Measured scan of single mutants.
Amino acid sequence: MSGNGNAAATAEENSPKMRVIRVGTRKSQLARIQTDSVVATLKASYPGLQFEIIAMSTTGDKILDTALSKIGEKSLFTKELEHALEKNEVDLVVHSLKDLPTVLPPGFTIGAICKRENPHDAVVFHPKFVGKTLETLPEKSVVGTSSLRRAAQLQRKFPHLEFRSIRGNLNTRLRKLDEQQEFSAIILATAGLQRMGWHNRVGQILHPEECMYAVGQGALGVEVRAKDQDILDLVGVLHDPETLLRCIAERAFLRHLEGGCSVPVAVHTAMKDGQLYLTGGVWSLDGSDSIQETMQATIHVPAQHEDGPEDDPQLVGITARNIPRGPQLAAQNLGISLANLLLSKGAKNILDVARQLNDAH
């Protein structure tokens, strides 16, 4: 009898209710805020589980004197976190989706994509230029951005401005803007500013005609071990179906173009009346040469937790077992079709030249 009692006690200790789920994140304040929001949602869904947040620095956090596009290494903000995932030191990792490459290392998958916040870019102005827009900034004003995508589009749109690289986390960039006289304004992701509670610093939100956004911008991705079915089931509740389908289309477009950090590629997606609209573009580094096109596809946005595919093969690095396969494939095909259209119009040449120029500098 006593033996059975011990077995029952052991089973209770090993039951999922007692389990601590370890969540990996970057150390920056924004990353911690984003991770806290994901953990809060998981806690609400699984009140019996405990969650421990483990923060670590990544290569991208450490190399702050070089433009991201020049470092010449993929997975700048993800490699150390993936290493911890691989060694079973954490069970899942919360990322900004735009930091996750469209091809993940073997053994990993994006197990959830959370509801997207505003994906557009924002302009934050130096205190002396508050009330201005990019259009009304004085001639030769210097605007800071760490992104080739932003610089290429904005140089084309605002030729009277000069664009220079600015690195560091959000706090560091804002301090550089406010305390030094080098920059009249800087460009940042609206979602990051909003998550930090800095709505009052948003001086201008850039519309798609001015600057399309990065693939996955404004959404959070939760990376897990691809074979860890328990954790895949656990994080599945975080999937937002519309965000998922938009981001599958965007990531398929980028992957098929073979774009990345070192080339200016941008997108804009919208879901309306059962249609998914995808606009994508590529630019030369100075913005003088560009190709942009829009395509659409009829896609039914499923309700969360309709029964999805059981075999769960990944699409552009994403596993969404609780979302039907048909809409996911339709979104992926839309991204591939748009990429093929741009490639047929000469996108590869623009991107190759951009890559060579970026590598040469």
Rank of each mutant, 00 (worst) to 15 (best):
N340A: 04
A31W: 01
L92E: 01
L137A: 06
S165T: 14
A191M: 01
S290G: 12
G24I: 04
L76Y: 07
V282L: 06
Q180M: 10
T279R: 06
G107E: 10
H120W: 13
A339I: 01
P309G: 15
L64W: 15
R251V: 08
L193M: 14
L193P: 08
Y46D: 10
D352H: 15
D99H: 07
V93P: 03
L193T: 05
V124E: 04
D311K: 01
A152V: 13
A226I: 07
L232D: 05
H207V: 10
L188P: 05
R175S: 11
R251W: 10
M295E: 07
T172R: 10
L245I: 12
L245S: 01
E117S: 06
G48V: 11
F125S: 04
R201G: 08
P101G: 05
E258D: 15
G203W: 14
T190R: 07
V237W: 01
E210L: 13
A219V: 13
E242Q: 10
G281R: 08
P159F: 08
V301M: 05
Q194G: 06
D286L: 08
V237G: 05
V142C: 13
K74P: 06
K176R: 11
S28W: 01
I54G: 06
T58R: 01
P324K: 06
T172V: 06
S147G: 01
A219E: 05
R150S: 04
A226L: 08
G48N: 15
V215R: 04
A151D: 12
L334M: 13
D233A: 07
K62N: 15
K70H: 09
N88L: 12
I350T: 01
Q50I: 08
E293N: 08
R164Q: 09
K157F: 10
S146L: 04
K74Y: 07
G144K: 08
A189R: 01
G218I: 01
A31T: 01
L170W: 01
D240C: 12
N349S: 07
S45M: 06
R325Q: 14
C261D: 05
A320Y: 01
K140I: 07
I350E: 01
V20M: 11
S288R: 03
L177K: 01
F51Q: 06
V202T: 14
G111M: 01
K272F: 12
D352M: 09
T133I: 09
G192F: 01
F253G: 04
Q194T: 04
D312N: 15
I350H: 15
Q296R: 13
L76R: 11
N322T: 07
H160V: 05
Y213K: 01
A214S: 07
L315E: 01
I299N: 08
Y277A: 13
P313L: 12
P127C: 03
E310M: 15
Q304C: 13
V265H: 01
E293A: 11
Y277W: 01
G221C: 10
P208E: 01
L85M: 11
M212D: 01
D359M: 01
Q292R: 09
H160D: 12
V39R: 08
P47G: 07
R167Q: 09
T269V: 01
W283E: 01
A347Y: 15
D36N: 10
T319K: 05
G221R: 01
S96C: 07
Q204K: 07
G346H: 05
I53K: 11
D178W: 06
V142P: 06
S141I: 06
C261V: 01
G48K: 14
D230G: 07
Q304W: 06
F158Q: 09
G168Y: 01
H207L: 11
S262C: 03
I187A: 08
K345A: 13
N171H: 10
K79M: 09
I205S: 06
L188G: 09
H126G: 11
G168K: 01
G144N: 01
Q332T: 13
I71Y: 11
V124Q: 04
G48S: 12
F163A: 12
V142H: 10
T298P: 05
A252T: 14
A122F: 03
A330H: 03
V263Q: 15
A347I: 03
R255S: 11
I186Q: 12
Q292L: 13
A360T: 13
I187V: 09
V142N: 11
Q29I: 07
K79P: 08
L220Y: 09
I33H: 07
I113P: 01
A226T: 09
E258M: 03
A214G: 08
M196L: 12
E242T: 08
T243V: 01
E162G: 09
F51Y: 08
D352R: 10
Y213P: 08
G24S: 06
T25E: 09
V103P: 11
D240K: 11
P101M: 05
A354V: 05
A67N: 05
K43P: 03
V103G: 12
G144F: 01
P47E: 01
N169T: 08
S69H: 12
L49N: 03
L220V: 11
L30V: 08
G346L: 09
L338T: 09
T145W: 06
Q34W: 01
Q180A: 14
E73S: 11
A44D: 09
H239I: 10
N88S: 11
L285Q: 07
Q155T: 11
R195P: 04
R19S: 08
H83E: 13
T41N: 09
S96V: 01
R149F: 07
Q332P: 05
G48C: 11
D289Q: 15
K128H: 11
F108Y: 13
C114V: 06
G260V: 15
